[in-house]
Design a protein around this nucleic acid. Structure first.
Lengths: 135, 135
DNA sequence: TATTGTTATACTCTATAACTATA
DNA sequence: TATAGTTATAGAGTATAACAATA
């Protein structure tokens, strides 16, 4: 009979353990977890401004500036002014960014799979569904 | 048909949402989430040194020093040298610390319950079990 | 020599405030 | 007046390195 651990502790440790798998998985692509997250939201069909991308990820727009600076230096994304509202920068994946996203997505899929490997297939699907309903 | 969100994103957001509930829940007790975590591990029957407490929480021993400094200032814990190994500080809850832990535990239980309120009872129990098996 | 607690320090991540330009 | 992007800055939270005391 083991002691019940706090939910906050479990979530934090799960996050850390997953990051230990995704970090190395992304290394060959030259990006970090947060950069992958940015590429992921930019990979959706609809074009996004910097602010919109930030909101999708739940981060501040000032944080997005730095992330995009890095991704732009790596030639993974490009900024261009919105034609109808020149306050906005629309952000798009470059060809290289798209390729990187595709490969990195497979790598992260593998890392998530490894992370969930301890659970039977049904439970692996279930925990994702449950978390999805919570957030 | 909604887009599948990354597991890392879900875990991070779940953590943030839970923290938004536990933070205010702990406020009446004058402690923060991390301090509650420390009190929790000190609340177990076996006496712990600073290092042992840090290891239970997966944090560095240098981080534990600062946390215990704060808790000691609040008269919630006490340090005393281990009788047989004077390199070690044994850390124990004060009477006030025990009372605070008891109340705070109920408050956090309530916050976790609220966090999981969107899920049917079975699923609320299940997600905790699944996370427990993952970490 | 190794371990525990401590301190100083630095690094990462993030947000707030203030500015520019646009609307 | 309000919004989007930017910059400067500051605050958490954390770890690494180095030291003293002890084993």
């Amino acid at each position: 009979m083991s002691r019940r651990r706090r939910l906050g502790y479990l979530l934090k440790q799960a996050n850390l353990r997953l990051a230990e798998l995704t970090g190395p998985a992304l290394e060959p692509y030259g990006i970090e977890g947060r950069e992958f997250a940015v590429l992921s939201v930019l990979g959706t069909p609809e074009p996004l401004s910097q602010l919109e991308a930030a909101q999708r990820l739940g981060i501040d727009r000032t944080t997005m500036v730095g992330l995009l600076d890095g991704l732009e230096r790596k030639k993974l994304v490009g900024r261009r002014p919105h034609p109808d509202d020149r306050r906005k920068n629309m952000v798009e994946l470059t060809e290289h960014g798209r390729e990187t996203l595709d490969g990195a997505t497979r790598a992260v899929d593998g890392a998530e799979e490894a992370f969930l490997a301890g659970l039977p297939g049904d439970d692996a699907r279930l925990i994702r569904d449950l978390l999805d309903r919570l957030v």
